[in-house]
Design a protein around this nucleic acid. Structure first.
Length: 480
RNA sequence: CGGGCUGUAGCGCAGUUUGGUAGCGUGCAUGACUGGGGGUCAUGAGGCCGCAGGUUCAAGUCCUGUCAGCCCGACCA
């Protein structure tokens, strides 16, 4: 390896050496984000934003298929509204940003920048709901929210982030519960089908649930460093917000009733998940489903014998179904471009040079396995489509394998402590579901309850940690 | 919030110990040659040394404050 090569490789800190530094290096060098002048606020650059747009497109379609409509509620919420639901305000108060002035004038009531929109949406819902015939309300909004965080990391925890928040009203508890689980399932499918990110779905403990919720469901993904990422949540709010905001309607019998509400959201945090589940020491590895560029064509010796003509031909042929770009920059060498696009995680690269033109073939490179293959020109389109599908499914398999390798059973808290300090990951255990035990586990091991999974395994009748009667099998991990 | 570290050209850094004309590499611009894994040569442009005070004849360098970022930990979801 030449001195220069070595220098290049060292641009990204190896993940085994320092995972946090690797993450920081990757997001900056691949131009997903940049830091803004305000602490905790990030700029999402075009390459990063394009990933978000792809996530949005998929989810927006799924939301509409499941009967939801988009709308938009204001950024600012009067303090009096925020305070209406006691647990909710207690949970969010420490991290809301306040607007106190309009121009030079001090406001009569200060306004908070939404940390989430339950309150203002419920306020509006109380005006809009009159009859059982109006139900259900199935609305979603794509928005930004602000939570004043003490320590931040781009995508994973920022003071402002982009997300969608669904807010629904239903006649019965059962319907609300069904909606809550339906949307969690949409998230799970998005994670697995689109992001190739395996998730564990289940319920949060009382301690971990959303401020003001009756029950919180979550999907949890495991990152390369063995830490879990809460990748999406769905809350059954029961009648908590309806009563607090006095949302009422007349039912079939002419009686005044409170509806049941839900809320659910995923955010730009998902992008952080993609990076940390799939990335390697060369940089990003993007699943074709969300990759802004799925295929890049790198012409070699572009000025020679009909190379560009053939490149244009291939580009025209593929561009209808595939997000494809031609890297025709003349001042970079092919080798430089190979490395650049690998770092940026483009799933498939097509190399086309004089040799290929002569033999009526191209060279294909796939980012997930780093393998090259030679393909005859007339099989190219078919092969590329096949390859994109194969990469997508292979990435999910690979991620599942990684997760399974980092998922452990333990016999007691000492064993868990050992695992958390040496080879962190998911720990499955029988659990009593008491707050006392949960706090103890956290203190001893640094791990928190991730969820009580829907898919249960029989791990015995006694709590693995405190020997009380176990209620369910649960997942624990250190979390982002 | 605590501990450690950093801020000098787009990026990576040296210069700070011992105050005295702003440096290197890379990138960028132009041109030529090159082109199958981070090319070669030539010419050129690019600096409120994070910001604000202070000490001094003189501050990138010393002092105070402040802002931002990174790493480790705590907190939070």
């Amino acid at each position: 390896m030449s001195k220069k090569d070595k220098q290049f490789v060292e641009e990204i800190t190896p993940m085994e050496e320092n995972f946090s530094q690797w993450y920081t290096d990757v997001i900056l060098k691949t131009e997903l984000v940049d830091y803004s002048p305000v602490r905790g606020f990030m700029v999402i650059k075009p390459y990063g934003y394009a990933i978000w747009e792809n996530i949005q497109a998929y989810l927006d379609k799924r939301f509409k298929e499941t009967g939801h409509k988009n709308c938009y509620f204001p950024l600012l919420i009067p303090e009096s509204l925020l305070k209406k639901e006691a647990e909710h305000v207690e949970g969010f108060a420490p991290e809301v940003a306040w607007v106190t002035h309009g121009g030079d004038e001090e406001l009569g009531e200060r306004l908070c920048v939404r940390p989430t929109s339950e309150t203002i949406i419920c306020e509006m819902y109380s005006k809009w709901l009159n009859s059982y015939r109006d139900l259900p309300f199935l609305y979603n909004q794509w928005a930004n929210v602000v939570r004043w965080e003490k320590s931040t990391r781009p995508f994973l925890r920022t003071s402002e982030f982009l997300w969608q928040e669904g807010h629904t009203l239903h006649e019965t508890y059962e319907e609300a519960e069904e909606e809550t689980l339906r949307m969690l399932n949409v998230y799970k499918e998005a994670a697995e089908e689109l992001l190739a990110m395996p998730v564990v779905v289940g319920k949060k403990s009382e301690k971990e649930k959303f401020a003001g919720a009756h029950a919180t469901y979550t999907m949890e993904a495991l990152m390369h460093d063995g830490q879990a990422l809460q990748a999406g949540t769905s809350h059954n709010l029961a009648q908590h917000f309806a009563t607090a905001f006095d949302i009422t309607y007349l039912d079939r019998d002419g009686k005044l009733q409170y509806p049941y509400s839900t809320s659910w959201g995923v955010s730009t945090r998902l992008i952080g998940g993609i990076i940390m589940v799939h990335g390697d020491n060369r940089g990003l590895v993007l699943p074709p489903g969300v990759a802004p560029i799925q295929v890049v064509i790198v012409p070699i010796a572009a000025h020679k014998g009909g190379v560009m003509e053939k490149v244009d031909e291939v580009f025209e042929d593929l561009k209808g179904d595939i997000r494809i770009e031609v890297d025709d920059r003349e001042h970079y060498s092919p080798g430089w471009k190979f490395n650049e696009w690998e770092m940026k995680g483009v799933p498939v690269r097509i190399e086309m040079g004089p040799r290929d033109i002569e033999n009526n073939q191209v060279v294909l490179f796939r980012r997930d396995t780093l393998e090259k293959e030679v393909v005859p020109m007339d099989e190219l389109k078919e092969r590329v489509q096949e390859l994109l599908k194969d990469i997508q499914s292979n990435m999910l398999l690979k991620a599942k394998k990684m997760r399974d390798e980092k998922t452990y059973y333990v016999k007691n808290i000492e064993e868990m402590k050992e695992i958390m300090s040496t080879k962190p990951g998911f720990v499955k255990a029988a659990w009593c579901e008491t707050r006392e035990c949960e706090d103890h586990i956290r203190e001893e091991t640094g791990a928190t309850l991730r969820c009580i999974p829907f898919e249960q395994e029989d791990l015995g009748d006694k709590c693995t940690f405190c020997n009380r009667d176990a209620k369910n099998m649960a997942y624990f991990a250190k979390a982002y």
